[in-house]
Simulated assay, not measured.
Amino acid sequence: MPTTPSPSTTPRRSPGALPRDIEWRMPRHARSVGRARTYLREQMASWKVPQEVTETAVLLLSELMTNAYRHARTAPGREIWARCVLDDTGRLRVTVTDANESLPVPREASWEDESGRGLALVAELADDWGAEPRPGGIGKTVWFELDAATDAGAL
């Protein structure tokens, strides 16, 4: 028979500590990149994330979404998933998942190249980033983290 935790052992959350976790599922289409930027910018405003952090997060999300759109050659109907989590310490983690299993590798673009700088931007501007195969499924997840805490402390 399941037991119910007593009130003294049940963690209490203040209204500001509600889960800050949102996911968007979009078609693998060029328009999804702009939509993801808009959705993230709106979500960051509602969570009161500092503007500088928001702009960096939007830029990096745009790079990861663009890579997923351009390079994840998959069957029609596959989606790109973008997820954003802001934890209680003010750590922002953004992930982009697609159905292609090839893990991205940063490269050095020449001055003449019109693309190829996205992961270098992510590596330079994010506090941490990485890519891993999708657990138990097809594809991969590419992620980055930023410190979104305000000067007054954690969000």
Rank of each mutant, 00 (worst) to 15 (best):
147 D>G: 11
14 S>G: 04
7 P>M: 02
65 M>L: 02
51 Q>A: 13
66 T>E: 12
24 W>T: 07
59 L>H: 04
11 P>R: 05
146 L>W: 06
39 Y>I: 01
7 P>D: 06
60 L>S: 03
33 V>P: 01
11 P>V: 02
103 L>Y: 09
149 A>S: 15
122 V>W: 03
7 P>Y: 02
140 K>F: 06
96 V>E: 11
7 P>H: 00
124 E>Q: 15
148 A>G: 12
27 P>F: 01
144 F>I: 07
74 T>Q: 09
20 R>S: 10
76 P>F: 01
114 E>D: 14
116 G>L: 06
8 S>E: 11
19 P>V: 04
56 T>C: 06
134 R>K: 14
104 P>D: 06
30 A>F: 09
102 S>R: 14
37 R>V: 03
102 S>T: 14
5 P>N: 07
110 S>A: 15
89 T>C: 05
109 A>Q: 06
31 R>L: 09
12 R>Y: 00
127 D>A: 13
107 R>H: 05
27 P>G: 10
51 Q>V: 07
138 I>S: 15
63 E>Q: 01
141 T>E: 15
18 L>S: 12
4 T>Q: 08
111 W>C: 11
143 W>V: 10
112 E>K: 06
25 R>T: 09
34 G>T: 12
19 P>Q: 05
30 A>L: 12
6 S>Y: 00
88 D>Y: 03
53 V>Y: 00
154 A>Y: 06
44 M>V: 04
27 P>A: 10
28 R>Q: 13
152 A>C: 03
60 L>K: 02
103 L>H: 10
129 W>K: 09
129 W>D: 12
155 L>H: 14
71 H>E: 08
13 R>W: 03
93 R>F: 00
82 A>F: 02
150 T>H: 15
33 V>D: 03
93 R>M: 13
14 S>I: 00
137 G>V: 08
73 R>P: 00
8 S>T: 10
74 T>W: 02
72 A>M: 01
132 E>G: 11
105 V>A: 14
29 H>P: 01
27 P>D: 09
54 T>L: 01
131 A>T: 09
39 Y>R: 15
14 S>W: 06
57 A>Y: 03
13 R>A: 10
35 R>G: 12
63 E>C: 08
36 A>L: 08
125 L>K: 15
9 T>L: 08
27 P>S: 11
83 R>K: 13
21 D>F: 00
147 D>S: 10
43 Q>M: 05
90 G>A: 11
95 T>V: 07
10 T>M: 09
71 H>C: 08
100 N>R: 08
4 T>E: 12
134 R>L: 15
96 V>M: 07
145 E>H: 00
126 A>S: 11
63 E>M: 03
119 L>C: 04
9 T>N: 10
63 E>H: 01
75 A>S: 14
151 D>C: 04
23 E>A: 15
127 D>C: 08
148 A>H: 09
32 S>G: 13
17 A>P: 00
84 C>V: 14
20 R>H: 13
52 E>S: 10
38 T>V: 13
63 E>S: 06
3 T>R: 11
154 A>C: 06
75 A>P: 02
2 P>D: 12
33 V>A: 07
18 L>F: 07
32 S>P: 08
141 T>A: 14
65 M>F: 04
133 P>V: 04
101 E>N: 15
5 P>H: 05
